[in-house]
Amino acid sequence: MVSKQELDQYLISIKESDNNHECVVKSALEVVGGKWKLRILAQLLKKEVVRFNELKREISGITNTMLSNSLHELELDGLIARNQYNEMPVRVEYTLTDTGKSMLPIFYELTVWWNNYRE
């Protein structure tokens, strides 16, 4: 849990930033933003090791192309690892990296916020 002092300092940094400097919120959202990335990460938190078709089944409405692109971007950003096995047919599994696992508190806080918002 973040302290009040840390939140106050964070708010000051947001207020003091100008358009000439990269906003940290914008940068973070470029990594995990969009319709699908957080849902993919949530599935990987839930199951630890997931294959492409499992993700496709669990995330309703996502296309193969969008899933593939999102997985590739998450891999490039260091949040997931892609493990391809030399088998026929080819087997590919996705797991969270330590950086990806470090998002667990963010998911928790988002869930707390959602539960309070719903009420």
Rank of each mutant, 00 (worst) to 15 (best):
V2M: 08
S3C: 08
S3E: 10
E6M: 11
L11Y: 01
S13V: 00
S13R: 08
E16M: 05
S17E: 10
D18C: 11
D18R: 15
E22N: 07
A28P: 03
A28Y: 05
E30Q: 01
V31S: 07
W36E: 03
K37L: 10
L38V: 05
L41C: 08
L44K: 00
E48H: 11
E48M: 10
E48T: 11
V49L: 11
K56C: 00
R57L: 12
E58W: 05
E58D: 11
I59L: 02
S60K: 12
S60V: 10
G61W: 04
T63D: 00
N64F: 00
T65R: 05
M66Q: 01
N69M: 06
N69C: 03
S70P: 02
H72C: 08
E73P: 02
D77I: 03
G78R: 15
G78A: 15
L79I: 06
I80K: 01
A81I: 09
A81G: 04
R82H: 01
Q84T: 12
M88E: 13
V90D: 14
R91N: 12
V92Q: 03
Y94S: 04
Y94L: 09
Y94G: 02
L96R: 01
D98P: 10
G100A: 08
M103P: 02
Y108I: 13
W113D: 06
W114R: 15
N115Y: 11
N116I: 09
E119N: 14
